[in-house]
Nucleic acid binder design. Structure first.
Lengths: 254, 254
DNA sequence: GTTTGACATTGACGCAGCGTCAAGGTGTAC
DNA sequence: GTACACCTTGACGCTGCGTCAATGTCAAAC
């Protein structure tokens, strides 16, 4: 069976312009040119076009497709088997994305909440490997033991850099709090700097900051025994001190 | 949680350039600009970006995404439900494509054959509806009864125009054959024109034409009872006449 | 025989969606 | 202080075609 541009275009679902372009860049030349200059495609060109479209579907550039297919060691069947695998990967990712959309629907209806990280699941391409194999592992090896990970803080929201920044900020906060406590003055410069650091640290975990919530959290550090024990561990009275400093910082007394 | 360009980029798996571009075309503006001119994104921008990427995944242009999302009647949840459906469609198409690749593998190993039409299954996007609902139905209503459809001719290879052309050619062939038969001369002008028409008709079904095969087919018209009955239906002896004409035309006597 | 209409051809320009420099300001860590 | 990683705004370039425009071809219809 022989095809003109339009016939082949309709068969394959592409435009004649696309076929002209493929001829131009030398990725798919017609079998022959007839006496009137028309492009005539044959059976092998049909098969070649199919391969090209397979690769295109996988997102490869035409340049690379050309390179691959003109490689003398190119093995059609082998390539197809690889295609199949890649397509199965793509299917998995699509299923992830569908799951994501379903979660987002549930979240928009208030039936559940999503971390920012979860919101982009299935939208990133290859990062899934890197993220989970390399990144995820390293992170867990480095920081896996920290108790803060077991708290209600949603660290999954963060990229590695953010994680490092927030832990650094946490260290700074602890040091500043310890020093400030020694001054005994919750209104003093050091204590107010501590309160500011606490706010910064908090902003990593809260989508919206407001003074009332900040002061409320500070009060909870005193009321909730788990928090109180944590802050008072080295220097008893620290939880109250931090609360006072924050109440002064925010200008909010409950 | 607040994000700078790079942090948001890493979260969503896109480049900072992309975020700048989205700002430039007004599809995703940062929540605010800090004192140094840095773009700062907030929670609602994260959600908005997610929506944008959902739409982008479906292949919409940024222009249309902007249009849709800035529409005051835009309903997020409703859009998500539509997203889900489209993604399921996409998944179906992907499964089709995978099936196609598997078939192609089988075909390359000689375990089966594929029509040209089948080779592009799953690569065309929306045509599946149109083709099967409209086109396929009409065709079948028009030509469904023709016995030629039940023969070994792979009509599925053709687009509608090709189908029409080949049936027209078939009509022409039958008429010419009938007239030529009346002359009684297989070497005559009419008979030779008939043989030529037969060749043309044949070229729609064979990927490669050669005289020997043509003559062989002509012989089969006489030897195979099904074909003989078909051609001799109106004028007995037509099958032999056509064979003789073709043998003269091709210069091949078996 | 010519005219119509659907096909084909080769340019050429344009567009989306960024990638990729360049030249410079910012901010924090050692 | 200085190194370094981040941010900014241009500006140019690239891919993969869409979309004219101007022109030639061919089968069918008048």
């Amino acid at each position: 069976m022989e095809y003109t541009v339009q016939k082949l275009g309709k068969l394959a679902g592409i435009s004649t312009r696309t076929l002209r372009y493929y001829d131009e860049i030398g990725i798919l030349k017609p079998a022959r040119i007839n006496s009137s200059g028309y492009r005539i495609y044959g059976q092998s060109e049909v098969n070649c076009l199919q391969q090209i479209l397979f690769y295109r579907e996988l997102g490869l550039s035409l340049e690379k497709i050309k390179e691959i297919m003109s490689d003398p060691s190119f093995n059609g069947t082998e390539a197809l088997i690889k295609h199949r695998e890649k397509l199965l990967d793509k299917k998995k990712q699509l299923e992830l994305l569908i799951e994501n959309v379903e979660k987002t629907i549930a979240s928009s209806e208030g039936r559940m909440t999503m971390t920012d990280q979860e919101k982009f699941e299935g939208l990133k391409q290859k990062l899934i490997d890197d993220n989970e194999k390399q990144y995820g592992k390293e992170i867990r090896e480095k920081y896996g033991e920290e108790t803060v990970n077991q708290s209600n803080i949603q660290l999954k929201n963060m990229t590695q850099e953010q994680y490092e920044e927030v832990t650094r900020l946490g260290d700074e906060l602890r040091a500043a709090l310890s020093e400030a406590f020694k001054t005994g003055d919750p209104a003093g410069e050091l204590a107010q700097k501590t309160a500011d650091l606490h706010k910064q640290w908090l902003c990593f975990h809260w989508s919206e900051y407001n003074k009332e919530a900040h002061a409320g959290l500070a009060q909870m550090y005193v009321d909730d025994d788990r928090f109180k024990q944590h802050y008072d561990k080295d220097q008893p009275g620290t939880a109250e001190f931090l609360r006072d400093a924050i109440q002064i910082y925010t200008g909010t007394k409950l």
